[in-house]
Design a protein around this nucleic acid. Sequence first.
DNA 1: GAAATAGTGTCTGTAAGACATTATATT
DNA 2: AATATAATGTCTTACAGACACTATTTC
Lengths: 236, 236
Amino acid sequence: MAADFPKPFTTVDLAIFAVHDGVLNVLLVQRPDAPGEPFAGLWALPGGYVDVVRDTDLEACARRKLREKTGVQSPYLEQLGSWGSATRDPRGWSATHVHFALIDGGGVALSKGANAADVGWFAVNTVLRRPRLAFDHAEILRAAVERLRGKAEYTSLPAFLLPEPFTLPELQQAYEVVLGRPVDKSGFRTRMLAADFLVETGQIDRGTKRPPMGYRLKRRTGPVVFPRTFSPRNGA
Amino acid sequence: MAADFPKPFTTVDLAIFAVHDGVLNVLLVQRPDAPGEPFAGLWALPGGYVDVVRDTDLEACARRKLREKTGVQSPYLEQLGSWGSATRDPRGWSATHVHFALIDGGGVALSKGANAADVGWFAVNTVLRRPRLAFDHAEILRAAVERLRGKAEYTSLPAFLLPEPFTLPELQQAYEVVLGRPVDKSGFRTRMLAADFLVETGQIDRGTKRPPMGYRLKRRTGPVVFPRTFSPRNGA
DNA sequence: GAAATAGTGTCTGTAAGACATTATATT
DNA sequence: AATATAATGTCTTACAGACACTATTTC
């Protein structure tokens, strides 16, 4: 009696972020142009149907799709939330479980998927200003960026956007790119070192005059939570 | 070509919280005892399948289920996240979209549902200590309580547990019940009034010696975010 | 030694936390 | 007047924010 009523489609979508040339980017895929395909030709967040045979759970499904699109094995991955309604997909009632991932911008080889004509990185600010995305992905992307910005105010999350080892100036720049505003150097350093989530790896040659100290994360399982936000005045 | 592959079950579950006699409670329903029913007789979070005909989206589905169980019309409702895997329900691959709701403990008439033999309030601390819940609901409840406690550290969320108008001592007690620790009165009052989310409604007779000022929320759409957490020393 | 980048020091304002005190009502 | 609860004041400490300064390397 349980299995013979109409079920919604179940999908997993991904908001994959990386920093390239000092700009926060998001990975988008182009919808196929075949007849009958919804939102043909439009760009969308990568994702797709849950495969009840291959995917043991939602996170495994998200990791599989991330691997298929980027080849990245161990990103920072976090569930963002779910969006489901009768109208978001013209093919019928559907619900998507959205995850967001942070990967480092260096050397990610984008692979063409079977169902996605093209894959590319897009500046978040540009996409959000002219949001011509398929489905409700503009709204989802907005929520993902909000979560990332919000957490950057009081966690070490932006560190997952950098390849290890990284330097404190580089980490500061990652914060500034995500937050979209400059951050005071002295306070930043105090804060990061006090949070006790970095391990020194020795000086690094970055081609600069004075060589900076290199750091790696003490634990890659998740971000550290700071006791206060960056600028209490603005409110979070 | 799209509709003829196996789809997971799609459900919505609810973690409904209320404070009764100074204790944080959660609403649970008893699984039916009929043969073939999974986790027969065990207690579970209220919820069930998405009805693709009646439910326009996930939130509407959550509101419908909340109404069916409690009669409450306009609670604080927030999405918690989703849990999906091949094994969490013996009937097959399933994904649940969990929402959590805060309602005030006064005068909620519990109605018996058709598919749930019984409904009742249970102290959260007791349930979490001996978590004999159906499905993965113990894990989900733990996540919901964590979210509630976490947000209580830096938002006005616990105010949604009170019937209006309420007093500042009552609000403080709601915080203490949720956080599980005492809170300094002076700092608490300063904080609440500075956050500018309360409106005076005139003095209230609570049967106490000195009558306290009554307050209601300026906006019931969502909590206000404080710039800092309650006890920075502990970390969030 | 000039220049550029990395890293540290100092001052100040704000606000949280602890605790004491005052205010307003009932009996 | 005594008592109980509501509300406010005061003091200390911590720390973020701003900005100036020192340190270390290359050319």
